[in-house]
Nucleic acid binder design. Structure first.
Length: 151
DNA sequence: TAGGCCATCTGGTCCT
DNA sequence: AGGACCAGATGGCCTA
């Protein structure tokens, strides 16, 4: 999936006429896996222009370039953020029990399964403790207290 | 072919 | 001000 992401995105953007066309997608820069940002040339502001701009607001074109550059950086961060979220989900999948031939759990399945798995572990532990106290007058109260602590 | 899942972009909001 | 986080939109891929 990852392999084709840049291409897919570029195609999607091209189709919808979005800001990031195929040409832009192929331009490499900071991001390792998904190199997408403006070249220095596009962002750079000539010293001459800087002089002229002193005391005045940027002209529309420059504002546009700055905004675009900021957006691209934000997209890059967002992508990385989602990747780290996915990495966390992957490591969660790895610690969850699974059959060898089982297909990969979806995100929502992973979260629900993890929730149920933890719940089952807690229940099993509680049960073991209660069984160890068979005969105790207050085993029921103990169970209630343990469960309450887990809330 | 419809529906589910996913990656990405985007603009808004909150936080530092 | 800039980064993190979030939710909506969009479009591709896959499967029943």
């Amino acid at each position: 999936m990852k392999r084709t992401c840049v291409e897919l995105r570029a195609r999607a953007c091209a189709r919808r006429g979005g800001p990031l066309c195929l040409e832009e997608a192929s331009r490499s820069s900071s991001s390792d896996m998904f190199p997408l940002s403006l070249s220095d040339e596009e962002v750079r502001v000539e010293p001459e222009q800087k002089k002229r701009r002193r005391g005045r607001a940027r002209c529309e074109g420059q504002v546009h370039v700055v905004k675009k550059n900021r957006r691209i950086k934000a997209n890059d961060r967002e992508r990385n953020r989602m990747h780290s979220l996915n990495d966390a989900l992957d490591s969660l999948r790895r610690v969850l029990p699974a059959f060898p031939d089982e297909t990969k759990l979806t995100k929502i399945e992973t979260l629900r399964f993890a929730h149920n798995y933890i719940w089952a572990q807690v229940e099993a532990r509680v049960e073991a403790r209660v069984e160890a106290r068979v005969g105790d007058m207050d085993s029921w109260i103990t169970l209630c207290l343990i469960l309450r602590c887990r809330l």
